[in-house]
Amino acid sequence: MYKMAEGVKDAAKKRKRSYTLKLMKRNWLLYLFLLPSVLYVLVFNYLPMYGIQIAFKNFTFVKGYAGSEWVGFKWFIKFFESIQFKKLMVNTLRISIYSLVVGFPIPIIFALVMNNIRNLKWKKVVQTITYMPHFISTVVLVGMMSIFLSPTGGLINRLLELVGGPGNIHFLGKASYFPHVYVWSGIWQGIGWGSIIYVAALAGVDQELHEAAMIDGANKLQRVYHIDIPSILPTIIIMLILRCGSIMSVGYEKAYLLQNNLNLETSEVINTYVYKMGLLNKKYSYSAAIGQFNNIINFVLLMTVNKISRKVSETSLW
């Protein structure tokens, strides 16, 4: 009995293998397509990966990558035991989840809305304007924010004053405001750029579907809901999966530049901490360990969300 079952299994395996081989043979060209990218990644990403080990070593240049002594998880533990660890985690997650929840849907909504603008010229103007902020460097952006958000005569305060607000709010000088300032400035800068991919996806929506729905008497909102959104859903899901895989990475530059002693309580995130450690204290191994910790969480999150998505929506990275 047992043997027979095995035999069947073997045969199935064999059949599968021969089918796979056939497929591989037939699609040899596709492997060739992949070759340049694979080579690139091998050389420029995998070859230098011996550098990862310094997170588990006490790295010094004299002893080099291979020669520095192993210290196991010393640096990881040091980080977990740091008094700031909890604060850093909370701050990082607060900002990234906030910007995921608010910042992720907004470009999608914007793309859908823009898709319904009929005047082509106006549409082009809108697109061109909204993608401009992407080109403003962080340093200048922060400088502009400091001007607009100034408690003494900044534009935002002037506007607030017009509608009866206090008019002297120190937006950058209060810890509780920081996540809002950080996230919304990010949305301002990224809304147009972030929507480009959805605009492109919407261009691929089958117009016949729309025409058919119109004949059925569906109004625009209904069509957006039943045609546009389902059509670009795979793109949305992939973007969401990728986004979830970067939850621990709150960019250090903007946070660092917006940081001051009054908002330190909420503005110190893992990456600004790493930056300060690496730059000011040259703790190569320690910063590498924190970096790895970040990456592992990100990667695990990506795998998890990807798995869930495959089950639920049949869209996944692999």
């Binding site: 591989m24 694979v38 420029f44």
Partner: peptide
């Protein structure tokens, strides 16, 4: 495409892990 999942992981892995600037 046989092996497509593995190749994807092979690529995706590099989005997160790298040897750092000096080895590169």
């Amino acid at each position: 495409l046989p092996g497509r999942g593995i190749i994807m992981i092979f690529f995706t892995f590099t989005m997160y892990f790298g040897g750092g600037m000096i080895p590169t």
